[in-house]
Structure formats: structure tokens, C-alpha cells
Design a protein around this nucleic acid. Structure first.
Lengths: 302, 302
DNA sequence: TGAGGCATAGAATAATCATTCCATCTGCCT
DNA sequence: AGGCAGATGGAATGATTATTCTATGCCTCA
């Protein structure tokens, strides 16, 4: 139904014009031929597309100061079977304006290259690279500035920064720890060595902060540890793939980096980037402009 | 709220948070308390907000593979009077996203050009993300297919794969090791623990392979170890930033990933991607199509 | 093993909604 | 002036839709 609007009339004149745009043109075109009441509706429709998209016939009629039946007649006059069909076009505008969403993005990605033949190593590389690019773009759009600032604020106040990331997320944790230390912060990497993970909980206080990184399927130890930190009152910054993740509960700031539906393999590219931004952002806020800190970092061994 | 980090868990529904955002958080917060079916709906709602906004109860139920009544129960569980009320919130997201689409897009474009103001965390994030994107593009172009194939060939013949990456390159090494092990390869991460790095050289043979990752300024231990492996006749795959790098000598395959001149901080995004391609490419060549390996990987804890 | 409490599915119901119909009105032509 | 065609308002209708209800299944705990 929604997928195939099935408009009987009002076919798009040019393929590149959106259904909504061509509808606007169609309305403008027929405007001189319309009756008085229908003109009122036409004006209202062009001026309040959102109302047209979301309202009921009665609501739209009331707002346009006409009778409900006139609305239906208006739809008929444009070649639609009824108001419902007309409304679909207005709704398509809202959908198009909404955040692109991963799925659509990936669809575009798939269209670009012939990703099917993965037996060629170079195509595989191209595929991972593309997925990484998409995830980076998405990262920019999905991360809220306020969250970044709050996270950096928490890190700035913290006496020590505990970094928790196990399994596949460990590289992210390691990178964050590395950068933080290079920038002069007291960072503690919880690496699970010697099975003393729980002991760290006992040393952390509410004056510290925990940055927990975990993606589906969530590492059991990470899932277990986060609530224990929370119970001790340690502020928590969570980097995960969904608000439904087990490490979200109790977190003060949550960075949601959704998985790409068709990703062959989680790339960790976006989390790495985010985490790096946190560390460097912290330094910039606390100290001096970026260049100075970057210089120090660049001259350290890798 | 922010002034006094009292942390009641989850983010406070401050005024600047949109109704939609706080709904998302509300759903996440209650998620653990929900029943099975309601959790399915919660996941669907967070993943398909547009469907929630525009669909009827029956349609949403069908797409989420649940009964219509469950949808209504879900709305009740969140404190709404019914699905209609819940839907209003999802619609508000569409409305909010639609109107500023033009104006904001232009604002965003203008922001793109001025990366100078790095004091804003979000701009910093955008900057890192952009650098990552560029480095990924460069990676695709600069890496030669023949090198990939030779590297994969060496790894395929190897009895064990030694992964050497210290300092800033350690996350790359950790990631490679993780993926290799998940794919059933014998991978040995040289992490420097216990100062027994040199001992690994004694166990490696010409039937093994070393993948060494190091970037300027090169980690001394890595620089020292690579020739020792070479002296024992162990094949070497080098991932570094220049052909003049100290780990290039004696390497059988060299992947050169140059630093970006204006980069604030090396992002490690490209090496991560390359290394992942090597691991997955190895599996594809040796075994079956990608999907199988990816499935196994996806079901492992992170 | 059996009883009790929840969760669920599916049908029944109540509400809402789009659409149609018809009486009335308006303007126009003869 | 009278008749006609189209337009309009408002109520009636029929369809769609949200919501409620109840029987059934499932799990838990005694």
C-alpha cells in the first residue's frame, strides 16, 4: 500500500522530480480551472503540506475552513481516487525529509559497486572501506553535540578514566587508552588480564568515570561489570550499538552507533573515531588549541 | 541536572531533548522490564520510526511480526493511552525533520568549510570522520591487488600467524588477532606482556608468518624485533607508512599507508580496514563464500 | 504434578474516519 | 424570468481502524 502509492492520476512529468514536487506543480497548473472552494484548498495544501500529510479529512477541512467533502472532491479533481491517495504524496515528503537511515544509505552503497564478487581481495577491501565510509558519515550525523560535551565534561572532572572494552571492542578501548595517556590523562585499561577485572570496580569511585564499549553480541564480562560500576556510583559513558544494549542502563551518556544491517563484519571504524574525538576534545577543552596537543602526540612512539 | 551530576541513571528528559528522543530513551529504559513480545516491538520501534509514524496498527503489527493487540499493549506499557498517542510522538519526528531540511542543509554545508573552530567537539568529530573517510579512499587506491594476494598467500601457508603491533599500532594488531582467531586461524598477538617479546622469535619458523604494524615514530621494540624474525627466515608482512620505514627491510610484502599531511592525529582507520580485509580474504580464499565466515563471526561475543 | 499468574493470540467491539449522497444554492444562458 | 449545470454544505453511510475482551498457552513455584 505505502510502497506502491498507485496514484491513478498525476503521473510525474520528469523522473527526477519527487512525487511531492510534481504534485505541487500539478496543483499550480490546475489552479485556474478549479472552483472557488477547491482553490481555497489548493492554497492550503501548498502552504501546509505537513497538515495535509498527517491530518484526517475532518482536521484538514477544519483548518482550511471548508467541508470535509470538499477535501475529497479536491483529491478527485487532481486525479486521485480519494484523500487517502493524495495524502500519500504529502507523506512521502516527510519520509524523504527524515534522517536518511542506514538502510537507504546502504542500498545506495550496494548500487554503487558490484559487491557480490567477494572472492577478489581487492574488492573485499573496497567493500570494507565503503562500509567504513558510510559508518563515519553516519557517525557525524547521529552523534549529538550535547552528548559529546557531557561526555567530555565527565571525563574532565574524572580523577581516573577507566576504559572497558573486551572481545571485538578491545581495540577501541586500547586506542582510547593510548590516546588518553599520550595526552596526559590517567587512563586505566580494563583488559581482563589475570582475571582481576572485578577488582577495578573496588578502586573506582564516583570521582572517576568509566567508558564502556560493547557491541552485539555483547561481551558477558562487560555486561556484568557495568552495573557494578554503576552501583558504586561511578559515572558511565557507554558506546554501543543500540539503546537496548545491556550496558545502557545506568549510563550517564550513551553513544549509539548502530550496526550496519548487511555489514559483513563490524568495522569498528566509527567507534575508533568517536573515541578519539572524545580524547582530543577533552584536551582541547582543558588546555590549549589543537595543534599543540597534536604535536605532542605525533612525536610519541607508535 | 547537569550542574549536579547526581546521575539517576539514563539521561534526564531536559527541555532541549525532543519528544522523540526522550521517547527513545524511555523505551530503552523500560526495555529490561518488558515482556518478550513487547521487546520485539521496542526493537522494531527504535529501528523503524518512520513505519511507526505512518503505519496503522495492523501494518505495524504485520511488519513487526506481532499481533495488533500487542502494539496497543506496548503503547500502554509506555504510559500512553493508546497507539494513537504513541504515534503522535513518532510523527513529531517527521515533522521536525521535514521543515528545516532546506535551511539546515545549507547551514551544514557552510559549517563543513570551516573546520578551523576545533573547540566544538562535534566539529572535531566531523574532522576526524572526514580524515577517516579520505584515508579509506586512499587505501582503496594505493593498495595493489597483487600485494593483497601475496599477503593472503603467505598467511594461508603459515602454520601460525604472529601479529606484531605496539604502541599506537596495538589496536590494529589486537583487531587483526581477534578476527583471525574468530575465523579459526592460529594467531599469536605479540603484546609485550611480561617482556617476553624476544622469546616469540625463538618459536617462530619459516613456516610461520609475521604481520608487523608500525607507524612513525616507529616503536623501538617493533623495529628491533622485525629483523630478528627476518634472520630466522620468517616471512614478514609489513604495514607501515613509508617505504623508508625501518620495518620494510626484509619484508616479503609491504603495505604502505602514508600519513595524511594535515591530519590532526593518525586515525588508524585505514590500517584497521586493511588488516580486516586480509583476515577475511584469507578465509574466503581457503574456504567458502563470505557469508558463512561472517555468520560465525557475528555470533561471537565482542 | 498441579495451581496460579502472566503473556499472548485472535476475535469481537467500539470508535473513528473517508467517502458518498442528496438537498440546496448560485450564477449563467436563453 | 425560468431553467440548467455546476458547486456547496451537511448528514448518512460504509469501510477502516484502534481498542478491548476472553480463551488459551506457558512458565513458575509450591
Amino acid at each position: 500500500m505505502r510502497k506502491h502509492p498507485k496514484r491513478s492520476g498525476m503521473q510525474t512529468k520528469s523522473a527526477q522530480l519527487s512525487a511531492y514536487d510534481s504534485l505541487r506543480e500539478g496543483i499550480a497548473q490546475r489552479y485556474p480551472l478549479l472552483s472557488d472552494r477547491l482553490r481555497v484548498i489548493a492554497e492550503f495544501a501548498l502552504e501546509h503540506p505537513t497538515d495535509m500529510a498527517l491530518g484526517t479529512v475532518a482536521e484538514v477541512a477544519a483548518r482550511a475552513k471548508v467541508q470535509p467533502s470538499a477535501i475529497v472532491r479536491f483529491a478527485h479533481a487532481l486525479g486521485f481516487g480519494g484523500f487517502t491517495e493524495l495524502q500519500q504524496v504529502f507523506r512521502s515528503r516527510l519520509v524523504a525529509g527524515a534522517v536518511p537511515s542506514y538502510r537507504e544509505r546502504i542500498d545506495g552503497l550496494r548500487r554503487d559497486g558490484s559487491f557480490q564478487d567477494s572472492s577478489n581481495p581487492h574488492e573485499l577491501l573496497a567493500r570494507f572501506a565503503s562500509e567504513g565510509t558510510v559508518s563515519l558519515e553516519n557517525l557525524q550525523e547521529s552523534v549529538r553535540d550535547a552528548d559529546l560535551k557531557r561526555a567530555i565534561g565527565l571525563m574532565g572532572q574524572a580523577h581516573a578514566i577507566y576504559v572497558l572494552g573486551l572481545g571485538g571492542s578491545f581495540p577501541v578501548a586500547a586506542h582510547l587508552t593510548y590516546v588518553l595517556r599520550r595526552l596526559g590523562r590517567r587512563a586505566i585499561l580494563l583488559d581482563g588480564l589475570g582475571n582481576v577485572l572485578v577488582d577495578h570496580v573496588l578502586t573506582a569511585t564516583r570521582r572517576d568515570v568509566v567508558i564502556a564499549v560493547s557491541f552485539r553480541p555483547y561481551n558477558p564480562e562487560t555486561v556484568q561489570l557495568v552495573p557494578e560500576f554503576h552501583a558504586r556510583g561511578v559515572p558511565i559513558i557507554a558506546v554501543t550499538d543500540s539503546l537496548l544494549s545491556p550496558i545502557v542502563h545506568g549510563a550517564d551518556v550513551v553513544f549509539e552507533i548502530p550496526d550496519m544491517p548487511e555489514a559483513v563484519l563490524r568495522t569498528m571504524v566509527a567507534p575508533m573515531c568517536l573515541v578519539q574525538s572524545l580524547a582530543v576534545g577533552l584536551t582541547i577543552k582543558a588546555n590549549e588549541p589543537l595543534t599543540s596537543g597534536a604535536t605532542r602526540l605525533a612525536s610519541s612512539p607508535r
